[in-house]
């Protein structure tokens, strides 16, 4: 390295040195990195608790260099509730997949959101059960082949995919809801922005925040990593549009800037 060069991209402090076990090209790793970068930027590592769930990210507690609790399948929002009721100032985030959150854990996520519990959910939607070898998920697209929808998911057989952000957006409790995609550089940048916003919402004590990240599963989609991110961009976003559904922090900031009338400010 020449001495006049500055490091512009470094391994995040909030990740341990443990090598992640994800398949090549799986965007779990990208999501982990973005969350870790946000934790570093907000300086909250020593007061953050990571909630690992059941699925490919079950080892999240080995990857994030924070305190951590491993949760049973789908129950992380209830565990987060328990922690936050005891320690309101601790920053808690649950890292959940689509099976964990939108299938077995649907009751817990909906009620935690409805209560406006002040924690953050990072929701990885890759439309498949990865760890158990590619079964149909609640978010599997119509027509998508999985190991339990071998002819492709059909609505008469297996119903329709669940749009979690839209569903939670019917509730008054959430303070921040956004869906982003981990597919291309602009989308990944936006994803990080949303993750930061979600954590800032929690730090400000505004209540429940969730970022849905459209993600890949090259292995069980039967695609190369490059085909998989194209699939996210071209197919998944049709069913799951990218949007910021709710941002109460922005609303609050709007009020604050309205209060400081023009001319009185900086």
């Amino acid at each position: 390295m020449t001495t006049d060069m500055k490091q512009v991209y470094a391994y995040p402090d909030a990740l341990t040195e443990v090598e992640m076990r994800y398949c090549p090209g799986c965007t779990h790793g990208t999501a982990h990195r973005l969350v870790a970068e946000v934790i570093d930027e907000l300086g909250i590592k020593d007061r953050t608790v990571t909630l690992a769930t059941v699925g490919c990210s079950v080892y999240a507690y080995e990857y994030f260099d924070t305190d951590a609790v491993q949760c049973s399948h789908g129950r992380a929002p209830a565990v987060a509730t328990g922690i936050k009721r005891v320690q309101p100032d601790t920053i808690v985030f649950a890292y959940q997949g689509d099976g964990d959150l939108a299938s077995i854990g649907m009751a817990e996520i909906v009620h935690a959101a409805a209560r406006g519990e002040n924690f953050t959910v990072i929701f990885l939607n890759n439309a498949v059960y990865g760890m158990t070898q590619g079964q149909m998920a609640p978010t599997t697209l119509l027509g998508q082949k999985t190991t339990t929808s071998p002819r492709g998911r059909t609505a008469p057989e297996a119903g329709f995919p669940i749009r979690v952000c839209e569903l939670l957006d019917t509730l008054d409790g959430p303070a921040f809801l956004a869906r982003e995609a981990l597919s291309t550089p602009p989308h990944v940048r936006n994803a990080k922005r949303a993750i930061k916003r979600a954590f800032e919402t929690q730090v400000a004590g505004l209540g429940f925040s969730l970022v849905e990240l459209l993600s890949t599963c090259p292995t069980w989609w039967g695609m190369t990593p490059l085909e998989a991110i194209k699939h996210v961009d071209e197919q998944m976003t049709k069913c799951y549009p990218i949007a910021v559904f709710r941002d109460r922090l922005a609303a609050q900031e709007g009020e604050q800037s309205a209060e400081s009338a023009p001319g009185e400010g900086e």
Binding site: V69, C71, S72, R75, A78, V79, A80, T81, G82, I83, K84, R85, V86, E108
Partner: peptide, 8 residues
């Protein structure tokens, strides 16, 4: 599971 979290 809330009990689990609070106990943790």
């Amino acid at each position: 599971n809330m009990v689990y979290g609070a106990s943790a």
